[in-house]
Structures are given as C-alpha cells and as structure tokens.
Write a protein that binds this DNA or RNA. Structure first.
Lengths: 307, 307
DNA sequence: GCAGAGGCATAAGCTGGGTTTATGGCCGAG
DNA sequence: CTCGGCCATAAACCCAGCTTATGCCTCTGC
C-alpha cells in the first residue's frame, strides 16, 4: 500500500497510534486465558505490568477493551474486534520473525535453505513457523536469489534444500513440484474488464498495455515467454508492491503472481480477469543435488511444503 | 494461528525479536527514499535518530539491511526481503489503526457506521484506509453488532450507514448489494478431500462431521439453513480463528467465510473442496433507513465499497 | 461466618531505549 | 578546492514500562 510515491503518512506516525507488539501479544493472551494475571505469567511479566499495559492501551485507543472483575477479565465487544485486528498484526510479525531468524544465521545452521525471491517472500515464512512448531530447535538459514544462484549453492554444498520457481529445473538437480503459482491478470473492481466473462485471448492480452514489472524480473520473463515476447507495458515499475498499488488505484490491468495478490483478491480490492490459451502457470519446485535426497530437517521442511 | 490452546510462544516473546513499528516504518521510508536522512525528515525525527535506529535493528536481526554510502543508502538483498516482510506488518498495523480510530469516537463523529462482525473485522479497515486518503478529515465511528443491532441503530438515527451480511434485509431499510461472501468448504492440503474434483452434494456435506463455529454464530446459521438444519459438528469452536487453526492442522474439513481464509488459500495452507447445490453464497449489503439515501461522507464510503 | 485463594489496582523507584544537539568525516559537483 | 549532501559518533536527557510492595474485592470451602 505504498511505493506509489504519493500519500504521505497523515500525521503522527503509526507507531504513536498503534500499541506496540508486546501490548498486542498481551491482549491476545488475555483474550485466550481470560485473565490479566494469567496472561502476565505466560509472557513472563508481573501482573501489575500487564494491568498497566492494558490500561494504557485502552487510553491510547480510547476504547475499553476488557471487562475486569474480581474473578477474571473478558473482552468487551470492541475488545473482541480489536483483538482480531491485533491478531493479524501479530501474525505478520511472526512471519517477519521466522524469516528474519532464518536470514540471521549466515552459514553454520543445521538446515540451509536457498530460495527464489517470490518463495522466500511469500511462502517460506509460513513454512518456517510450521517447522518451528515441530522441530523447535532446528536453526534454519536462508539465502535468497534467482534459480541460478540457488543451483550454484546447492551444487557447492552450501545449501541443503532449494526452492525455485523457474520454467525448467537447473541441471544437476532433482526436484519435486510442491505447488503451482499462476500469473493472473487483475484489475481494480471498477475497471471495465472486471465484468468481463469471456476469457481474454493471448493475442488480445499481448496487444493491450499492462502495468508490469521491469524487464528482467522473473515475473516479466515468464509473461514475455508466454506471450512470445510481446507484452506491452503501460507503466513499468520496479517492485511487486508498486505494481499492486497501481492496479488497486485503477491505473490499469496488471499481471502478477497469484501469491502476491491473495489478500487483495479475497478483499475484492482487485479482481481477476479470465485469460485463455496462455501458459501463465508455473511450477514451484523443491530442488536438491541429484542423488542427495533430503534427509533430517530438510526432509521435514519438504514434507511441510507439500502438505 | 492461535486460539488452539496448544503452542506456547517459544521463548523471549516476539516483541523482543521483532523491531517495533516505528523502526519498520522507518525501514520502509528508507527503502522508498533511498536515504536515511530523508526518511528521518519524513518521519519527523533527526538524522542521527534514524541512523541509530536502523543500526540497532540490524544488530537485533543480525543482518545488514542497508548499504550506506556518502551519497545515499540502498537496501541490501536481505534488506529487500526484510522490507517486504516489514511492509506486511505495517499494513496490518494500518488496518488496526483505521479500525481502532473508528471505534474510538463513540458518538459524535461525522460519519457513524454500524456493521456486522465479519464486515467490521475483514473489510471495513481497508475501506477506512481508502476513505482516509480521499477525505482525510472525516472522522468515522464504528459500532459492530448483528443485523438487528445495525437496523436498530440506523432507525434510531444513531448511525448513518450500515453493513449487514444476513440473508434478508431488515424491514425499514433500503439496501444495495456491495459484495458477496461465500461460505466455503476447506481442508488442509493433505486431507483426502483436497484432491476431490467432483463437487460434493448437499446431502453428502450434511452427513459429514465438520469443524464448525458454535450454534448461534452467523456463519453457523447460514450453513444450517442451507443444509436444512443438519450440519454435523466434528468439533464446535467459539472463534473463527480457532476453526481455521484446527482446519490448517488437518483436524478435518471446515466451513468458513471466504473472507476469513483468503490468505490461507493463496498460501495453500488450506484448499477449497467444491460443493454443489448448496446456497452458501450470501450477500453483503450496505443499508440505510428507507428514504434517507446516503449523502456526503456516507455516500463516499458507499462508493468505495462498491468499487 | 470466616479464612484462604485468585484476581485486579495503586504507588514508588529504577532502568534502558530512543531522542536531541553538537560535531566530524567522506565523497562528488561545480 | 570548497561547498553541499549524507552518514557516524558522543554526550545528555526523558519517558515508557518493569518490579516490588501493598490493599481491596469476590467467590469457595470449611
């Protein structure tokens, strides 16, 4: 929701209006346990600290969040709503943490993963959260790069498991398809194309100006190949986020990875336009050096991804 | 990812491992502007403060995020990845803020909205963010409740615009359909049903134990009506989140609002199972007292929702 | 009834992270 | 070669949040 170059933040920045992560976590714990003191114990702080923190959060938001009674605390109606919004923030923070933790340990971790950007950005954090709940003591390290980089690291023995989203599998590697990613054509719901029911043909698509990533990006390559090198840019932007923002604002139709726009679609900020006869589906694959079938934590991670 | 009663947080809580919102915002500003000082100016802090904050974030994460040079700063590869994860946290925080701000002003705001829970939880924050970018000075207040409550407030003149997701429109109100929400049948990707291609019939669905919300919840009501009051619970849980968590963990198939599982679907943590001959689609409607067609900010919000 | 346990609030004192102001070094442009 | 933009370091300050220490309330069980 940024990167468009417009829209400065309104006034005092977010951080002054949104409670910090600790407070949000505390609120979730209170919701789950039904008690301030219990939540405090779970987070390893004292009961007065929890009490004061919830109170200051209520002051900050201007809304009563919990009903306190001498035998426990329940969320108010507003509190339930706030807690749901808080949960989304905390989940995003968990994904951040999982990714960052993997990025941290540069070399010597037990499980070294190399992944393409799209996978590292959208899928890997979720897998790592799941992995952590099964094998809490597995340290994972992550290296992000294109298919060639992933292959190189695997073959050099510097990574145990790789993930690529290319059209072909680099030689010297075995692979399994773990999922599919489609590039999809999307527009803002107000755009004329949004109501279109007849699928768009490849020729039609190739002859229409689109909001695109810059030439050279993985997404753009796939589209160019699928259309026969013909994609016509309406605007070229240098990040997926910028493309999304432009499309949402109604600047035009865009082609993006399904993974990148899942939320926008379910919230109807964007809608898909059917396309026919264009191979916009690409495989997401786990890869490893031929022969070196994944074992141990790598095998565990792999099984999570294929779910 | 919570509410399941299992899974305690690993160790030192998230807040100690994830930079605070201010730092994440700062990182986004640096990414966008290509300069620490510039980002500092935008956020209204001094350059050394920004410098130190970015540095301490790098220390915390154990990863270099920006390449500093005497003529600007660029993100490192890892920094780009971290920034993308950070953006998701900040976006969730923006939604939180938009919702909380609306919840705050109890009575006297310029635009008073009454909405059902599902809409208030998933859709409204996004609309409010959009509204704020068009009419920055419109103060919105929010009241969440079921259809009856929404109708009552509108008719009492205590709300200007309402949103309901019921099967029928309360009498005395005019309405427009602004979107559709479907209840969908979902399972973890590993579940046998995940591979099913032939749609499931209503009878089949009614005779299979499902993970469900408790009787009385809106979602459950719709399902019971659609199936003729026959839904068989495998487990009954008291929150959408708990149902999601159970389904993701493979406990069984669940029926949930499409809005609630958008992300899980695009990340393939859940997959849909086709269902046939069951009216699981429900209208989401904007409502207002008959005759009092929305004007001013209410009209603006309404137009945003129909996009 | 009464005592004990569980739950929340208030008060006082401490600590640390984040800020500011002040200053210096580095690099490219004119 | 000097000026301007950008970043780093140092020192002083301030406040948010934590802890410890109490007190009050309510429900339960004897």
């Amino acid at each position: 929701m940024d990167g468009s170059g417009a829209g400065r933040p309104p006034a005092a920045s977010l951080a002054h209006r949104v409670p910090d992560l600790g407070a949000l976590e505390l609120l979730l714990a209170v919701a789950r346990l039904g008690s301030l003191g219990g939540a405090a114990r779970e987070l390893g702080i004292t009961q007065p600290a929890a009490s004061s923190r919830i109170r200051s959060m209520e002051r900050q938001l201007g809304v009563a969040l919990v009903d306190r009674s001498p035998r426990g605390s329940r969320l108010t109606d507003a509190g339930a709503l706030v807690t749901d919004w808080a949960r989304r923030v905390v989940e995003a923070a968990e994904a951040f943490d999982a990714g960052a933790q993997a990025l941290r340990d540069r070399r010597d971790s037990r499980l070294r993963v190399a992944a393409s950007m799209t996978i590292a950005e959208y899928l890997l954090p979720g897998w790592l959260i799941a992995l952590r709940s099964r094998r809490p003591d597995t340290a994972v390290s992550l290296l992000a790069g294109n298919s060639a980089v992933v292959a190189e690291r695997l073959l050099a023995g510097e990574a145990d498991l790789g993930f690529v989203e290319g059209l072909s599998v680099p030689s010297g590697l075995d692979s399994v398809v773990i999922a599919h990613d489609r590039l999809i054509l999307v527009t803002a719901p107000g755009h004329p194309w949004a109501r279109r029911r007849r699928p768009m043909s490849a020729r039609e698509l190739a002859s229409t100006p689109l909001i695109l990533r810059e030439t050279g990006s993985g997404t753009r390559q796939v589209l160019d190949v699928a259309l026969g090198g013909l994609a016509r840019p309406l605007i070229e932007l240098s990040s997926t986020t910028a493309v999304k923002a432009a499309a949402v604002s109604g600047a035009g139709p865009a082609v993006l990875s399904e993974l990148a726009v899942g939320e926008e679609l379910s919230l109807r900020r964007l809608v898909t336009v059917p396309v026919d006869g264009v191979a916009l589906r690409r495989d997401l694959r786990a890869v490893w050096p031929t022969g070196h079938r994944p074992t141990g934590p790598a095998r565990e991670l792999l099984s999570l991804t294929r779910a």
